[in-house]
Write a protein that binds this DNA or RNA. Sequence first.
RNA 1: GGAGAGGUGCCGGAGCGGUUGAACGGGGCGGUCUCGAAAACCGUUGUUUCCUUUAGGAAACCCAGGGUUCGAAUCCCUGCCUCUCCGCCA
Length: 422
Amino acid sequence: MLDVRFIRENFELVKEAIKNKGEKLSIDNFLELDTKRRKIISEVDQLKHKRNQVSEKIGRLKKENKNAQDLINEMKKVSDRIKILDSDIQNIEKEIYDIIIKIPNIPHPSVPVGDESHNKLIKNWGELPEFDFTPKDHLELGKELDIIDFSSASKIAGGGFALYKGLGAQLERALINFMLDLHINKHGYTEIFPPFLANRESMFGTGQLPKLEEDMYLCKEDDLFLIPTAEVPLTNIHRNEILDGAKLPIYYTAYSACFRREAGSYGKDTRGFMRVHQFNKVEMVKIVLPETSYDELEKLLADAEEVLQLLKIPYRVVNLASGDLSFAGAKCYDIEIWASVEKKFLEISSCSNFEDFQARRIEIKFRRTKNSKVEFVHTLNGSGVATARLMISILENHQTDEGTVIVPEVLRKYMGEINIIK
RNA sequence: GGAGAGGUGCCGGAGCGGUUGAACGGGGCGGUCUCGAAAACCGUUGUUUCCUUUAGGAAACCCAGGGUUCGAAUCCCUGCCUCUCCGCCA
């Protein structure tokens, strides 16, 4: 959410950003509403000032047992007028709110303008594997090695779910632990183990609502949503708080299962692990000083990249163009890993700087020193990383001509030193 | 699920419907004292919005949202949350 004053003073810039993000939204009546709102507030504040003074006088008169009926009658009228104006303000503020809640964040100057064809490749890492045999895809490998069982999963829960078995389950667990340990011990994050359900307010705070309600699993009885990412609980930890600036930056990491209905996504990239309703992810969230957020974004990206480097999975990094950027993002790097059989890159991590867009929405502020005024923090998050697609890449890239899979070295200590899945 | 208690400022904790934005205590900040520190004493200590803008003035906020009233932290209703006891379950 942008600041009302900022919109008022940078109206053309905001319109430009809406266009560049590919949003269809007219904000032409904003300025009129904004002016009207301020005018009515001035009027009603004056009336309230009068009411406060006269009410005090009435109180004094009553104490002295004097008659105050004339004043009371007069104030009755004033109060009625105030009631009308207050409700006018409420209506206008609702209208304004409905507009600004739909205004996307302004892309950073370093973000390419245009649709996704303008995404800018930042780097390639690692050598794409070449096989002197016909490589199998992850579904085939998973089945033959008896480590991933999609058909049992669909018996239990329906399509779009996975069941890990034996070394498959161990491999999954190893990945999660490896990533958490890396972020905690080497990158300085604090581990959080959050609730996997979140209320409406939290979901709204991080922007999953109202736009994406259809994509969320909802427990109706309790009006709780299954979290689609640990970003929801992590970012909401400090909702409505004023933090001590000396304690920034704050780095949180968390493992969580992630639940997504993926409504309306049938037919596209749905095979196997490509798109599932429940997957595991280690998420990273940063709450930082505004002036540091772009440096922090580079570090966040590096933290996610290191996961892949240590697993020896080739990847590339893309700086998303304005039209491909998420609603709340000011800048975002996508990390895409190579799937050998699909012969394409799969998005596995998004590292975003939201600047103060999220913070404004959920009111995370800070004070630099004891007596300085409050400012909004900047927030960032990145996947570090999601395991489902990682599993595709590990199985497909590390397979041998014997149909076995070599366990990446860094995972072996989490798997009882098993080095090959056969 | 049943019964009860409660949600007040950075924290603890008061608050007959009428100078209560909020007593009192603690903490923080500034100062006096001191070679320095502690103690003591004095002062100060929230956020948001609107108007005018050297400087100010005004409004709103005591979990949230409604209501009663000339006037509400204080009364009424709804919701949310926390705590205690019982039951049930892991």
